[in-house]
Structure formats: structure tokens, C-alpha cells
């Protein structure tokens, strides 16, 4: 999953005003990603769900960083899905 908050250099708990300001200042960002980011984060419903799933990814990245999945199954290729969250862990 893409980490839009990392792209905006904002914490997950950022307010909508902060998000709008950060979006205005976006540069050197892939156009399609920018469009997706705007559509998701500027919608109340979508941004709320995005935040909640974002929290799960944050927690999962922390778990992987600390313990890994060596002795477990990895049917979803979590390391790839969590690649944009590793820095936060």
C-alpha cells in the first residue's frame, strides 16, 4: 500500500488543513500518485478508512521489523506491501 502521509511528510493524525497545505506544496511526485492521493485524502469517508488501514500497516511493519515472518506464512507478500512503511517502524 502506498504511504500517502509519508509522501506528504505528515503524521497519520494530520488534520485536513495540514493535508491541503501539504498537497499544495507537492512537487516531483508522480502525477498519477498525486491524483490518487488527492482523491483519497480529500474525501472524508475514504481518508478515514485510509487512516485506519494505514494504522494497521504501521503496526504490521513494526511487527515485521521486530520479529519477522520467518516461521510463519507469507501468503500476501507482506514485505512488499509494507515497503513504504518500513521507515516508520
Amino acid at each position: 500500500m502506498r504511504n500517502f502521509f509519508q509522501t506528504l511528510n505528515l503524521p497519520r493524525v494530520a488534520q485536513s488543513e495540514e493535508i491541503s497545505q501539504a498537497i499544495d506544496m507537492l512537487s516531483d511526485t508522480d502525477q498519477s500518485e498525486e491524483a490518487d492521493l488527492i482523491e483519497i485524502l480529500e474525501s472524508d469517508t475514504k481518508s478515514e478508512q485510509y487512516r485506519r488501514v494505514h494504522l494497521q500497516y504501521d503496526a504490521m511493519a513494526t511487527f515485521l521489523a521486530q520479529h519477522g515472518l520467518e516461521e510463519a506464512q507469507d501468503t500476501h507478500l507482506w514485505h512488499k506491501r509494507l515497503v513504504e512503511f518500513e521507515s516508520e517502524s
Binding site: 478508512q49 485506519r52 488501514v53 494504522l55 494497521q56 500497516y57 504490521m60 511487527f63 515472518l69 516461521e71 510463519a72 506464512q73 507469507d74 501468503t75 500476501h76 507482506w78
Partner: peptide, 20 residues
């Protein structure tokens, strides 16, 4: 919900239960 779905899938892998 999306968060539940994501969490259940991750825990199933972490607990060696797997997707199937």
C-alpha cells in the same frame, strides 16, 4: 471493514494459518 480485513489476513499469516 477494510481494517478488519487487513488485520485478519495479517494475523492469519503471522499465526501460520494462511490465506486458504
Amino acid at each position: 471493514t477494510p481494517a478488519q480485513n487487513t488485520l485478519l489476513r495479517f494475523l492469519s499469516d503471522a499465526f501460520s494459518i494462511g490465506q486458504d
